[in-house]
Design a protein around this nucleic acid. Structure first.
Lengths: 238, 238
DNA sequence: TATATATGACTGACGGGTCAGTCATTATTT
DNA sequence: AAATAATGACTGACCCGTCAGTCATATATA
């Protein structure tokens, strides 16, 4: 009734288990060929683990997060986690990457918007942020990165390259156009696109820290922000 | 972390005094002028523990911070920590309180500045921030609060009441005056003083996360920010 | 089709390291 | 001597990561 030898040896060799190997950040999950129904099950499981991880990590922070909790919340046994992720840290990194990707898609969509005014683009961007970040659990991720970034230089760098640099590039282009066309009162925002994004960050952090003490009128904040950026005394729109 | 549920909201009020085992009185910490060398020694020891704690907590976060490290860095034995603070959580709360106090003094000084222009006041405020927060370990505390705040509602609330609300009140007054006098192009910043502070927060977080990848020209950022707030096209000084 | 065999995804108890908090002992002050 | 302050070895809970074993499903054989 044995023959565990083969399997044991394979595992001993180092790398067995699920196909989605995630060493050195390379191969992402999907082998596009969908032949096996197994494949989709595995992917779904991976997703549910990531979803559970986001909640648990965001609630307790990296160090205090318990993988038992992640497993329980994902509806799997603890050992299963290790079939999908090498260790706690790899899970955390995969979590950040997985949550960041949709953001990039959204941002790219904005970048390629052809012929709308800078102000409209700005408004669209803010609206997108309010809906897709503040309105979802992704806002937790943002705070998580702020909190854990210094202890995960690889993650901070990844986030900088993939999100921050990209986002600022878009904002800078937008601000330059706005400055040229007179929509912005100066090129200040073009030189420091961080100024455009800063209130968004404040909104997220405020939401996480002070929401229950003193809720923030995000919409009003962002409208006021646009007003400041344009330098217009008052601009009431529909 | 200790017992998950219980938590120590209740003890937020009481500070562990220097005396080790008194279940009786509520001896406050500083007996004002006592010539006893003991008293000053105890206070100095307390301070060195807090200083050590700031570094260690800021480096590792609350959960991953080791009290052995705090003790070693403060030059005391671990048991000594418990003569000054009830437990890890009380130490953390005391740390936040102790680091916040000087900030309040500084801010109050600004509030009482009598007759300078709003722009000068703004410049002074930014300079103060750059020097007293970005230039010291207090910037670590700021990130620490962002990171741990959600898990310490008492601290978040304390910080809101003592620092955020106070600071925003000052900023709002400043912005209202600036709007009246025409220094600001609208009352947007007066309605949402967060807009004035947002770039400062960005500067702190950027410093902690991306400084080594892409250092931020804080001075340039703040100058550009003032430019945006005033809505002036270009204001070049020598 | 029915039965036997093989596979590997999944489980969960457990080993082992870590660390907050304690307390008997030592050192210092009064 | 008595009281107070400080020490650091110790304990026990906690949790990450492991791995021998299970079982549902797929494949091979009769």
């Amino acid at each position: 009734m044995r023959s565990a030898g083969a399997s044991a040896r394979a595992k001993a060799a180092g790398e067995a288990s699920v196909r989605s190997r995630d060493k050195s950040g390379k191969s992402l999950i999907p082998s596009p060929s969908k032949r096996s129904p197994r494949r989709s099950t595995a992917e779904a499981r991976r997703q549910s683990i990531l979803a559970a991880a986001l909640t648990v990590f965001a609630t307790h922070g990296f160090a205090a997060a318990r993988l038992d909790d992640v497993a329980a919340r994902a509806g799997v046994a603890k050992g299963t986690l290790y079939l999908y992720f090498r260790d706690k840290e790899a899970l955390f990194e995969a979590l950040v990457r997985s949550a960041v990707s949709p953001l990039l898609q959204h941002m790219s969509k904005l970048a390629t918007s052809p012929e709308i005014s800078p102000l409209q683009a700005l408004e669209a961007f803010f609206a997108l942020f309010a809906k897709e970040v503040l309105g979802t659990e992704r806002k937790l991720l943002l705070r998580l990165i702020v909190a854990e970034g210094p202890r995960f230089p690889a993650i901070a760098e990844f986030y900088y390259r993939e999100v921050v640099a990209h986002g600022l590039r878009i904002m800078r282009a937008l601000a330059e156009r706005a400055a040229r066309e007179g929509a912005f009162s100066s090129d200040a925002a073009a030189r420091f696109p961080q100024l455009i994004v800063a209130p968004l960050l404040v909104a997220v952090l405020w939401d996480g820290l002070f929401a229950r003490i003193d809720p923030l009128d995000v919409d009003g904040l962002l409208r006021a922000h646009r007003q400041v950026l344009t330098g217009k005394p008052e601009k009431d729109a529909p």
